[in-house]
Design a protein around this nucleic acid. Structure first.
Lengths: 203, 203
DNA sequence: TGTTATGTACACCGCCCTGTGTGCTTACCG
DNA sequence: CGGTAAGCACACAGGGCGGTGTACATAACA
């Protein structure tokens, strides 16, 4: 929040209204959902006048789409780029999204918007495909027989855990991780399930 | 729609406004979602005056809750009560919800309402638990080592397939069924994965 | 037949929503 | 220092929403 005040507003100067708006979007859309968050409230939290908001984003739809685009780094890269884990461990680490994330916002957006043509829905699709692809890449790296299939399966598990966590209000990711372990072990042909690619890491 | 015109309205007589309202709810809440369906439109489709609707249901919330309560028989009982299948086949048959169902309405309601205290959200939780319980029962019947765990796992797969189908606009149930087959075979200890309980069925 | 529950037609309220118009202030940067 | 873009405050339009009030019609049953 400190660095936001000087961040590039998209043009060249200014005091970072755009970033504050997107920050408030992250917070409110997550906590309350998209439809239940009005632009008035959002602008109040962002400490931005409504006029300014509509000068940065042509409408709420565009804001929602941009809000979704600001996510991947935290989860996606944060897991797949770890070099201290074997590929197999990286696949399992994708299920270690412990308490904070209430629901994958892409699922929420797709359900709330209820319009496959909406830019945000399209981006949600792209993102889900990208996650499955990265999982497939890692699966290939781990030596899976059919990496695409395993990637798609693991992606389904993540979405299932997210949805179920939301509906039941209990953490379903451990269950998903257990399934994932079974699938991974079944998909990797040799006994090379672990430390077959591990290099010296610590010390 | 023909029988609805004479069905018991809940009291004793009348021309079935309540049933028409619930029928319209099924249609519209599914097609458009809950929040995007106004009472005006709903009453128009149900061919019911708005005044009548609010005499049957104290508010939209109650209508939504009642709408969710009218579902299980079609899917839940329709699968688990089949006697022509082995327990294992019944577990897999739960993934044969082919094209019609766009999204499990319980997930949709939980996301759209965004309020765990809402009666509909509570019922959604109950329903999900009930499904998991029935899956666990069938898993026990099939001889699974840990039926509760398998039931929970299969329920997660179903939800994952539903969510993923919704977001990606492609049928994810085959993938879920493949995972289910693996889990089931892994969970049943002996080689008695099939026809160990099957009786003579056809001819 | 007449009473009563049931349903209808239609206007209406207050609220919140997305989105604008207008005029003013501030901060940056040459 | 001055120009200019960024941002602000405030009021307002237009519409959909959930929900209601009132007066009238009809079907069922006594």
């Amino acid at each position: 929040m400190t660095e936001l005040e000087k961040g590039p507003t998209g043009r060249r100067r200014g005091r970072g209204a755009r970033e504050r708006i997107l920050g408030a979007s992250q917070q409110l859309f997550r906590e309350q959902g998209i439809n239940r968050t009005g632009m008035d409230q959002l602008c109040a939290v962002a400490e931005v006048s409504k006029r300014t908001a509509y000068q940065h984003f042509t409408g709420k739809d565009e804001l929602v789409a941009e809000y979704l685009r600001r996510f991947d780094p935290s989860v996606l890269s944060g897991v797949f780029d770890r070099t201290d884990l074997t590929p197999r461990e990286r696949l399992l680490a994708a299920f270690d999204i412990p308490p904070t994330t209430p629901l994958c916002p892409y699922i929420g957006a797709a359900v709330e918007l209820n319009d496959p043509q909406h830019p945000a829905s399209q981006y949600a699709r792209d993102y889900k495909k990208a996650v499955a692809a990265r999982l497939a890449d890692t699966a290939r790296e781990a030596g899976a027989a059919d990496p695409e299939q395993l990637g798609e399966q693991l992606a389904l598990l993540i979405d299932g855990a997210a949805a179920r966590t939301r509906v039941l209000n209990t953490d379903a990711f451990p269950t998903a991780a257990a399934i994932a372990a079974v699938l991974i072990d079944n998909a990797i042909p040799a006994t090379a399930s672990d430390d077959h690619r591990r290099e010296e890491v610590s010390s």
